[in-house]
C-alpha cells in the first residue's frame, strides 16, 4: 500500500477543496455539499491511520463510523434549514441570510 504521507496529501487536498467550496459558493445546497467533502477527507484520514500506522487497531474505523453518522445528521438538519429559509425568503442564496448582521 502507499506511504501514509501520500494519503495525507490526498485528504488534505480534498479538505481544501471543501474549504474553497464553502467560501466561494452562494447556493446553500452547494455549501452543504462542500462540507460533505471536508467530512469525507477527515474520515479517510482516520481510517488510513487506523489501518496503516496502527494495524489491528479498531479505533480509526470506529471514528469514521461516527463521522458518517454525524454527517448524516448534519446534512439532514442543514437541508431542513435550507428548505425553511427558501420558504421564508424565496431564496437559497447564503448572502441573503443576513438578519444577524450589524
Amino acid at each position: 500500500m502507499v506511504p501514509i504521507e501520500h494519503i495525507m496529501v490526498f485528504t488534505g487536498a480534498l479538505f481544501c477543496l471543501g474549504v474553497y467550496g464553502v467560501m466561494a459558493r452562494r447556493n446553500a445546497v452547494l455549501v452543504l455539499m462542500a462540507i460533505e467533502l471536508m467530512l469525507n477527507a477527515v474520515a479517510i484520514n482516520l481510517v488510513a491511520f487506523g489501518t496503516l500506522v496502527y494495524p489491528g487497531q479498531i479505533n480509526g474505523m470506529v471514528f469514521a463510523i461516527f463521522v458518517v453518522t454525524i454527517a448524516a445528521a448534519e446534512l439532514g438538519l442543514g437541508l431542513a434549514i435550507v428548505l425553511r429559509v427558501y420558504r421564508m425568503r424565496s431564496s437559497i442564496n447564503v448572502d441573503d441570510i443576513d438578519l444577524m448582521r450589524w
Partner: peptide, 17 residues
C-alpha cells in the same frame, strides 16, 4: 468591531480557517 459581523459566510469561514 461589529463591522466584522458582515453576514457573509465566507468572512466567517476565513476567520475560522
Amino acid at each position: 468591531l461589529r463591522l466584522t459581523t458582515s453576514g457573509y459566510i465566507y468572512h466567517y469561514a476565513f476567520g475560522f480557517i
